[in-house]
Computed example of a mutant assay.
Amino acid sequence: MRLSAPIYHLKRKAKRLSREASIPLHDALDRIAATEGFSAWSMLAAKAAAVTPANKLFPQFRPGDLVLVGARPGQGKTLMSLELAVEAMKSGHRAAFFSLEYTQRDVLDRLRAIGAEPAQFDKLFEVDCSDAISADYVVKQMASAPRGTFVVIDYLQLLDQRRENPDLTVQVRALKSFARDKGLIVIFISQIDRSYDPAVKPCPDLSDVRLPNPLDLKLFDKTCFINNAEVQFRAAG
């Protein structure tokens, strides 16, 4: 069965329904699922997860890769990153999600929204929402992480928001070196500049990445840009 809209649009619709009807979000999600022909949101999410682009993207990543996932707000970049983390865990690897944007509850709710129950991954999934997140912090926390661990940083532009942190380029270089030395896959979720016009090109690219501070984008080995359910994946070179 084909969904009437991408799952992140359906989830947004459910949130709106929850507010307007004053019902719990899980009830609103189930109602939206019913309109799509499913008895519960968990079944809809499982169906969507089975056909997600993450299934095809994950095998293209290699230990040591530094990856940028970018999109405008509401286009599914966080869900895509979590779907990739789920693929990693299904393969037996650990995954860690560092967020300066969301709470742990927010992250776990989004994990459930894509049909993944946190408990099913036991100790494979770690969420860290510390205000102290920086390159040095991630390196310290992941010092004993095994090869193949999938690390998501949410998000790129917030890494140097604290004056005491090094410049963004310094932090990204440090994480690139760390990823290669340890054999980790590091994903940076990235904002896209408001000047991006989908009428001009279907997906944003590196030229559209919002950079309040300078950063050499050639540091990224691979990129994944999303807009209106279209996904464009590219490897450097």
Results as ranks from 00 to 15, higher is better:
residue 152 V to F: 05
residue 203 C to N: 15
residue 206 L to H: 03
residue 109 D to L: 14
residue 1 M to L: 13
residue 228 N to V: 07
residue 98 F to D: 03
residue 192 I to C: 05
residue 42 S to H: 08
residue 191 Q to G: 10
residue 234 R to D: 12
residue 50 A to Y: 07
residue 107 V to F: 10
residue 142 M to T: 02
residue 210 R to F: 14
residue 226 I to S: 04
residue 177 S to Q: 14
residue 72 R to T: 14
residue 79 L to E: 11
residue 40 A to V: 11
residue 37 G to L: 07
residue 14 A to H: 02
residue 228 N to M: 07
residue 132 A to L: 14
residue 115 G to E: 08
residue 29 L to P: 06
residue 124 L to E: 09
residue 232 Q to P: 00
residue 54 A to W: 04
residue 111 L to D: 08
residue 226 I to A: 01
residue 92 G to W: 09
residue 209 V to Q: 05
residue 57 L to Q: 04
residue 197 D to C: 06
residue 188 F to V: 02
residue 211 L to N: 10
residue 146 P to T: 08
residue 30 D to W: 04
residue 212 P to Q: 03
residue 96 A to F: 06
residue 154 D to C: 08
residue 198 P to N: 03
residue 106 D to K: 06
residue 190 S to R: 03
residue 48 A to F: 06
residue 226 I to P: 02
residue 192 I to T: 04
residue 22 S to A: 14
residue 218 K to T: 13
residue 210 R to A: 14
residue 119 A to V: 09
residue 129 C to S: 15
residue 100 L to P: 06
residue 200 V to F: 10
residue 207 S to N: 10
residue 133 I to K: 00
residue 193 D to Y: 08
residue 83 E to F: 04
residue 7 I to L: 15
residue 182 K to P: 03
residue 65 D to P: 01
residue 149 T to W: 09
residue 42 S to E: 13
residue 170 V to C: 08
residue 43 M to T: 12
residue 34 A to E: 10
residue 94 R to M: 13
residue 155 Y to R: 07
residue 5 A to W: 00
residue 188 F to E: 03
residue 118 P to H: 05
residue 192 I to N: 03
residue 234 R to K: 12
residue 77 K to W: 12
residue 89 M to S: 04
residue 153 I to M: 08
residue 65 D to C: 02
residue 229 A to P: 05
residue 130 S to T: 08
residue 226 I to T: 07
residue 199 A to K: 15
residue 97 F to Q: 04
residue 139 V to Y: 00
